Computed example of a mutant assay.
Amino acid sequence: MKITDPPRTPEQRKADLLGRMEREIDIWVATADAEGVPCLVPLWFVWHDEAVWLCTRLTNPTGRNLRDGRRTRLALGDTRDVVLVDGEVRTHPMREVPSAAAEAFHAKTGWDPRGEHESYAFFEVRPRSVQAWCEVRELPRRHLVREGVWAA
């Protein structure tokens, strides 16, 4: 997108966002522990059933923070094409992960964590807020999801 292009409509930004969720494999995951110590890591993800699904070990800071804090901020893109997702997290131990979500993750990433050590878990992130914008001219209408409801 060029600076001279008109701002995208909310419908176009939603379509662009969902396309990126299908294409991109990595997403930045921001969490904090009980003392507020931040943690930021990239993880593989899949968009499935209106949620972002992640997988990591419960024994690392990100896994513990996702499980215990039950909130995260996810980010895609660079400064010219930003996506921020604030979501509520539900932890799914390997034995309890919905098979459709695990299969979608496996199909996208090529990795099936269900065959890994039991310390791995899936994390279902339900968006409460989604913002997407390219450049400053799209900032006034950047909110695509508010309180868990799509605006477009």
Rank of each mutant, 00 (worst) to 15 (best):
M1A: 15
R8A: 15
R8V: 04
R8T: 01
T9D: 14
T9N: 12
P10H: 03
Q12I: 12
D16Y: 02
L18C: 08
L18S: 05
G19Y: 02
R20W: 09
M21A: 14
E22A: 15
E22V: 09
E22N: 10
E24K: 09
I25R: 13
I27G: 02
I27S: 04
V29R: 04
A30K: 01
D33P: 10
E35T: 12
E35Q: 12
V37W: 14
L40E: 02
L40K: 00
F45S: 06
V46N: 10
W47N: 06
D49N: 15
D49S: 14
R57V: 00
L58F: 00
T59Q: 11
T62E: 05
R64E: 06
R67I: 00
D68K: 02
G69Q: 05
R70W: 00
R70D: 00
R71L: 08
L76G: 04
D78Q: 08
D81H: 14
V83K: 02
L84F: 15
L84I: 10
G87N: 05
G87R: 02
G87Q: 03
G87L: 04
T91E: 14
T91S: 12
T91L: 11
P93M: 09
P93I: 09
R95V: 14
R95W: 08
V97F: 07
A100Y: 01
A102C: 10
E103I: 04
A104M: 13
A104F: 11
F105P: 11
K108E: 07
G110E: 08
P113Y: 15
E118A: 14
S119Q: 14
S119H: 13
S119L: 10
Y120G: 00
A121Q: 09
F122L: 11
V125C: 10
R126W: 02
R126E: 00
P127G: 03
V130R: 03
W133D: 00
R137P: 06
R137Y: 04
E138V: 12
P140G: 03
R141N: 14
R142Y: 02
L144T: 10
L144D: 12
V145L: 11
V145C: 13
R146A: 09
R146S: 11
E147L: 04
E147G: 13
G148M: 10
G148H: 07
